[in-house]
Design a protein around this nucleic acid. Structure first.
Length: 172
DNA sequence: CGATTTTGACCAGCGC
DNA sequence: GCGCTGGTCAAAATCG
């Protein structure tokens, strides 16, 4: 709420969603890793999240997801969290809250140990959809933002809907 | 006026 | 059993 989606967030754009990333996007995906907690059934939906639903996977190089990732630690606690699709992104951006097309409602904030930065908890506010999202800044580089999605949406992103309804060249 | 953020309290799991 | 940590809830406040 401390930011207006229009003026102060030039990087949050619809163009960010479709297949090809728009050059306009100000932040760069420096690193992204996918953590899938041992799901009961070979649920490939977690992968589709990374590739299609996020629209980022496509041509992205999964450049060594180990370069700078304190997240790897959390992998340990991953084991106890079963059946939870988790996708973690490390994004370089000044703005932590990125508009991925869904409506997120913040439901909590916590100070992180070993970090001066708080961590924010969001939930998808669409009816019946209980996807969670966790946003936190890197404690070393304040310019990096760690975003973790948990679960899969029951519905399409509003942006995706628009995209599907629009003629192929409506984005130029 | 409805929806969303804020913030502290509450709760559960884990380690010692 | 106790205390710590991370995660969630809920009531009040705020925004559009």
């Amino acid at each position: 709420m401390d930011f207006s989606p229009d003026s102060s967030n030039p990087n949050l754009n619809i163009t960010f969603y479709p297949d090809n990333l728009d050059p306009v996007t100000e932040f760069e995906l420096s690193d992204y890793l996918m953590l899938d907690g041992g799901v009961f059934e070979e649920d490939s939906s977690s992968q589709s999240i990374a590739s299609s639903e996020k629209g980022l996977g496509g041509a992205n190089e999964i450049s060594g997801a180990t370069s700078k990732t304190p997240i790897m630690q959390t992998e340990a606690r991953e084991k106890k969290l079963e059946q939870r699709h988790r996708v973690a992104f490390i994004t370089k951006s000044e703005i932590e809250v990125m508009d991925d097309g869904y409506k997120w409602r913040k439901y909590g904030k916590k100070p992180v140990k070993n970090s001066p930065n708080p961590r924010n908890y969001y939930k998808c506010s669409s009816g019946g959809c209980n996807v969670k999202k966790r946003i936190e800044r890197d404690r070393d580089d304040h310019s990096y933002v760690i975003t973790t999605y948990e679960g899969s949406h029951n519905h399409y992103s509003p942006f995706t809907v628009y995209y599907n309804q629009m003629p192929p060249n409506a984005w130029t």
